[in-house]
């Protein structure tokens, strides 16, 4: 069980990184990675939302949709539930921890219908995920969500660093701004492909 969890964390953070290998959630990755502290805030918000979303959508799929034979409604129901949930959390934070709300506030609604969040919810319900017999399935899904969020955070912070270096090194005029950002994003993604296969083989 323990080995399984280590593998899932390694895989989701490095090998199947949601941003850099699966190319989901590119919008905030490019949009909010200008400053390291903003990127960090966004990353933390994403971890939070991914875990909460899985916490709610996983039982819904298993005990409501599957029970009624309505698997095909997965996407629409998940979006509905995640959006309502994030709204709720935002209200809660505004009331209880205003300082956290002020720093996370703008990011929370932004990631409500982010495809990376939806992707985590859907992927945590695939055949492969549900057949890890020796780990409680729900725990496994939650760890997977946390690790995926961690991978997102890693990608954001790494890329914020890259962008800082780029801004300081004055690229040619024609490449300034979006073009050089996209090119460097692709190179960072390429670097992450180097992790392919590492996690499985480490624990053989």
């Amino acid at each position: 069980m323990f080995k399984d969890l280590i593998i899932i964390i390694m895989t989701s953070v490095l090998v199947n990184n949601y941003v850099l290998s699966r190319f989901l959630g590119i919008c905030p990755f490019l949009g909010v990675s200008k400053k390291t502290n903003q990127a960090f805030g966004m990353g933390v918000a994403v971890i939070l939302v991914m875990m909460m979303a899985t916490l709610v959508t996983w039982p819904i799929q298993r005990y409501v949709l599957d029970a009624f034979g309505l698997e095909y409604l997965q996407t629409i129901v998940f979006i509905l539930v995640i959006a309502a949930l994030v709204q709720l959390v935002e209200m809660f934070l505004k009331k209880v921890i205003p300082s956290l709300h002020a720093s996370l506030g703008i990011y929370l609604p932004l990631i409500t219908t982010n495809c990376a969040v939806l992707g985590v919810c859907k992927n945590s319900l695939t055949e492969e995920m549900l057949t890890k017999a020796d780990t409680p399935q729900f725990l496994y899904a939650m760890i997977y969500a946390f690790a995926s969020g961690l991978g997102f955070l890693l990608a954001m912070v790494l890329f914020a660093g890259v962008r800082n270096r780029i801004a300081a090194s004055k690229p040619p005029k024609a490449f300034e701004g979006t073009p050089i950002t996209l090119i460097s994003a692709s190179i960072v993604a390429l670097a992450f492909f180097g992790f392919g296969g590492i996690a499985e083989n480490l624990f053989k």
Binding site: F68, L70, L73, V77, V81
Partner: peptide, 8 residues
């Protein structure tokens, strides 16, 4: 299907 989504 309608009932389930509406309920949620």
């Amino acid at each position: 299907a309608t009932a389930v989504v509406t309920a949620i």
